[in-house]
Design a protein around this nucleic acid. Structure first.
Lengths: 220, 220
DNA sequence: CATGCGCCTTTGTGATCACAAACGCGGCAC
DNA sequence: GTGCCGCGTTTGTGATCACAAAGGCGCATG
């Protein structure tokens, strides 16, 4: 055998692992609704698109499948999920269970600086509504919730919740296209008011209605 | 180019994909506490153990990592997680949120045949207690809960819950070893009674206390 | 005897390849 | 004109290899 004639590996001093970078890119796209339900993804296609071989692409896709962000057909094909109404209702119920709990845990730690940050994000959210920008709307909406829940100091609960968000991603976009928002986020203001007042039951209720309100149109 | 001189691939007419079989084996071992917290797993080690190359082993491990069943060190090493008390408390809170909801949804569909099946599983669970068999105890305990929740017809919620169970797996075993059960599952009988009576608030309470009771000793 | 340095081994990452199954498209028969 | 069969192409799966980095162990040194 010849010793070392093939030297295929490029050094490529990227800062992080390739499969992890691709994972983050795809995850973000799915989360904010940049991918439509039913869209197919192929290993070689994504590999060519990002200059990677099949191996890291497969890892990124299988990770997203494991988190429920993508579905795996019987023959191994990967695609964004097309959710049934029943599944949407389940995921909405999970949000309605988990998010008030996280908000409640964040409440004692919610300083004024945090509330100001939330108000700022809410302004950006209202701008996305005005511009009818679905992706910006979804992104700022999730950022509002995540910023609040980060204060709960409950990383395991937040991680579980984010997988629920991920599963709803492609459908949230479809929801927005079907029922375009003509109102700024009314419930977000209720959440901010409850935070300022230190009103725990009011906060739980405001979060819960904010979550269920948005998804009622689609699942109902 | 020579045409086909290397023929490394074995036909191996196994019924399912190799990475998926390995995934199920490891998942079950983690779920019932057959692996202790902090145990390291290597790609080549598992590959040699199961007669596989690194590729399918990597997929199985990364899937379990994505589900939170295993942890990934900064250098890519995979091991069973050593949970902190805070993390255990969070996961217990998630169980206390999700499981009463699933039980409540199962209640209208809980026929007598189901209750009988649950009672049978409960008997096996009591036998595991008598024999001080930690793995059998955990397995039958989870089987009791899963059998009930399957009737809720809520696969997405059940899938999320199972990832929570998975994360608690290695620790539940440690819990059992620390506080060996000397009593048969008292709360399971309360659950069965509430099911028979069609008592929805009682069922929610019984499930919630069953969940929190078992994990209080460790996290407290 | 304790401590730090360096080498060898172990381990994860990514690329490439052979293979089988699924998919799709075109032609052929009725 | 319509339906079906077959072959080429696409796609996922698993094996193997080269490489880099992390870990561990022993040896030399203070």
């Amino acid at each position: 055998m010849s010793e070392t004639l093939p030297r295929p590996t490029k050094p490529l001093p990227a800062e992080a692992a390739a499969h992890d970078r691709l994972y983050r890119i795809l995850r973000q796209q799915i989360l904010v609704g940049e991918m439509l339900p039913g869209q197919a993804l192929t290993l070689r296609g994504l590999g060519k698109q990002f200059g990677l071989s099949m191996t890291p692409v497969r890892e990124a896709l299988r990770r997203l499948v494991a988190e429920g962000a993508l579905t795996l057909s019987s023959s191994g094909r990967v695609a964004t999920p097309e959710l049934t109404n029943e599944r949407i209702e389940e995921l909405a119920a999970l949000r309605a269970l988990i998010e008030p709990e996280l908000a409640s845990r964040a409440l004692p730690r919610a300083h004024l600086a945090l509330i100001d940050r939330l108000a700022t994000i809410n302004t950006a959210n209202a701008e996305a509504v005005a511009k009818a920008d679905a992706v910006s709307f979804i992104r700022t909406n999730l950022e509002f919730h995540r910023t609040l829940y980060l204060r709960a100091q409950a990383p395991a609960m937040l991680a579980v919740l984010e997988t629920v968000w991920l599963q709803l991603g492609p459908t949230m976009r479809a929801l927005y296209d079907k029922v375009p928002r003509n109102e700024p986020p009314r419930h977000h203001r209720l959440i901010l008011a409850a935070l300022r007042a230190g009103d725990e039951p009011g906060l739980r209720l405001a979060v819960r209605t904010d979550v269920t309100q948005g998804l009622r149109h689609l699942a109902g």
